[in-house]
Nucleic acid binder design. Structure first.
Lengths: 141, 141
DNA sequence: CAGGAGTTTGAGAACGGTTGTCAACTTGGT
DNA sequence: ACCAAGTTGACAACCGTTCTCAAACTCCTG
């Protein structure tokens, strides 16, 4: 018998709703800090720590996808499908397209097995510059 | 005419040799801090900043491969081949096997093009637990 | 074998994203 | 309304990495 046996269900708070709502707005990957700022500017401020906590909770629950930007920041987005998939992400604006790596899954598993590795996990992400960002070229951000 | 025109060649120093040497020893991915500690324990100390600088230089020169661990740390290893390839890495000890993603390259390019993205880059890494680490199970580190 | 211009080093400060702390505040069941 | 337990947020702490800049070193030249 462990702790989870006695754990009460999560509560619905203004903050959680606000974060979830902010994510619902866009199809672009956003950092915790960006979301924090967005909420603040909306006049719907939520503490930074709370933003981080909420995003993590949503992530483990499978409600949002997380990925690491090329410089190590965690980016979040509410994804359409809950099944496993990958992303083609604009490194400039964060806009993303969901894609499936056709054979990637079994390829990963078989390569792993062939070398005696177990518990194989894989990261497959595509980075590029989207059409819109290509358009407004040297523009800052 | 830019600066590079006037830049002198890099110099060989004890520190650079030491870092390169430390990398030559192992087939495992190592963090900058691990290498720094390794050198120190060898009595061949090199400043941490220098370790970082040297690793970066080696990386841009294509002499070492870099990848990000699952928790965001940069890991370095001197790889056998200079051509593009991917890795199957033990998340416990860093031991790695070089692999090639058969069709990954062109798949990435075509998926990118199909969505109007340019300058496509891809990250494909496999994480698992190697046979040796599976053996000494609950052992710390 | 100096001399010296220009490169490299390293200790420590600074940085930026993220997590920990803990008293005050909510939420939801009764 | 009351209360036990979950949640919040301002702030400090953390951790990997980069910056700073005076001192040390390389290597070219005479």
């Amino acid at each position: 018998m462990n702790d989870t046996t006695h754990r009460n269900p999560p509560r619905m708070t203004r903050q959680r709703a606000a974060v979830a709502d902010a994510l619902g707005d866009t199809d672009e990957f956003r950092s915790a800090q960006q979301l924090h700022e967005l909420l603040r500017s909306r006049g719907d401020a939520v503490g930074l720590a709370t933003v981080y906590r909420t995003l993590q909770a949503l992530a483990v629950g499978g409600d949002v996808d997380v990925l690491r930007s090329e410089d190590g920041e965690s980016l979040y987005r509410r994804c359409a499908r809950r099944e496993h998939h990958h992303h083609l992400v604009c490194r400039r604006c964060g806009r993303a397209v969901e894609i499936d790596g056709p054979t990637v899954e079994q390829w990963a598993a078989s390569v792993g097995a062939a070398h005696g590795f177990i518990d194989i996990d894989h990261t497959v992400e595509l980075w590029g510059t989207c059409a819109a960002c290509r358009a407004d070229d040297g523009r800052p951000n």
